[in-house]
């Protein structure tokens, strides 16, 4: 199957190894992956900060970059949700609205794509240690993805999933919120991390690099050696 990879700006700039792992995973699953290097950012920061014109401008560019019929795989639930919701940015009469409507069903979050579309078997991967899953808000609530990553992690040899009762609680990132209200944002992270540290796991895993950046950054500040890992890094064959 031909797929188009939208790697997201944060993976591209901060964690290219997540992009490499995603690429390897998709190829291992039997996909032919097309990566268009003209891609930039999904535009969510501007959208969430209320800069509609800027968000539209970036959305148009991204729709150009992702033109075609292939499924688009995104290693981030939040960015995938943004791509899926492009239509909200445009008036119904705007031709870009129709383009956005056509784009939406092609967009897949990585774990949902692997499980629902490829019936992927992750038993080839191995990971030594305990981990807990963080349900990123947009992955869970915008895309309804909850079981797929757990299903995949359950197949990984050696990986022990320990559920945190507050796994669905927001990490505190929230895009520009993390910078505009940093004290609240950090306090929200601490609420989750207190619980996760008490669980005694080795790693927090999620499918959203922004949550991982938030939780990982806070873990380092707190002097914890729990690692914040992307699902693709665990599953990479």
């Amino acid at each position: 199957m031909q797929v188009s990879l939208f790697v997201t700006c944060l993976v591209d700039q901060l964690r290219p190894e997540v992009g490499q792992a995603t690429l390897a995973l998709l190829e291992h699953a039997g996909c032919t992956v097309n990566f268009n290097p003209s891609q930039t950012c999904c535009g969510q920061p501007a959208c969430n900060a209320g800069y509609e014109g800027e968000a539209q401008q970036v959305a148009r560019h991204t729709m150009d970059v992702l033109a075609g019929d292939d499924p688009i795989v995104v290693p981030s639930g939040s960015c995938a949700a943004q791509l899926k919701h492009y239509a909200d940015l445009f008036d119904a009469e705007d031709p870009d609205h129709a383009r956005a409507v056509a784009l939406a069903p092609r967009v897949h979050e990585l774990s949902a794509f692997l499980v629902d579309q490829m019936n992927y078997d992750a038993s080839g991967a191995s990971f030594e240690g305990t981990l807990t899953w963080h349900d990123a808000c947009h992955t869970l609530r915008e895309l309804g993805v909850k079981d797929q990553p757990r299903h995949l992690l359950g197949q990984v040899a050696g990986a022990q999933l320990v559920e945190a009762p507050e796994c669905e609680t927001c990490c505190g990132f929230g895009g520009t919120f993390a910078i505009k209200m940093p004290e609240i944002s950090v306090a929200m992270s601490d609420r989750k991390l207190d619980e996760i540290i008490a669980l005694g796991v080795d790693s927090i895993v999620s499918t959203d690099i922004s949550c991982l950046m938030q939780l990982g950054g806070r873990l380092i500040s707190r002097g914890s050696n729990i690692r914040a890992l992307h699902l693709a890094e665990i599953l990479a064959p």
């Binding site: 790697v7 993976v11 591209d12 700039q13 901060l14 964690r15 290219p16 190894e17 992009g19 490499q20 990566f35 290097p37 940093p182 004290e183 950090v186 992270s189 950046m213 938030q214 990982g216 950054g217 806070r218 380092i220 500040s221």
Partner: peptide, 15 residues
């Protein structure tokens, strides 16, 4: 203020 800054990779994914 409360979080370690992420370190950008030497080479981006696209590179």
């Amino acid at each position: 203020g409360g979080r370690s800054l992420p370190t950008p990779a030497k080479k981006s994914f696209r590179q």
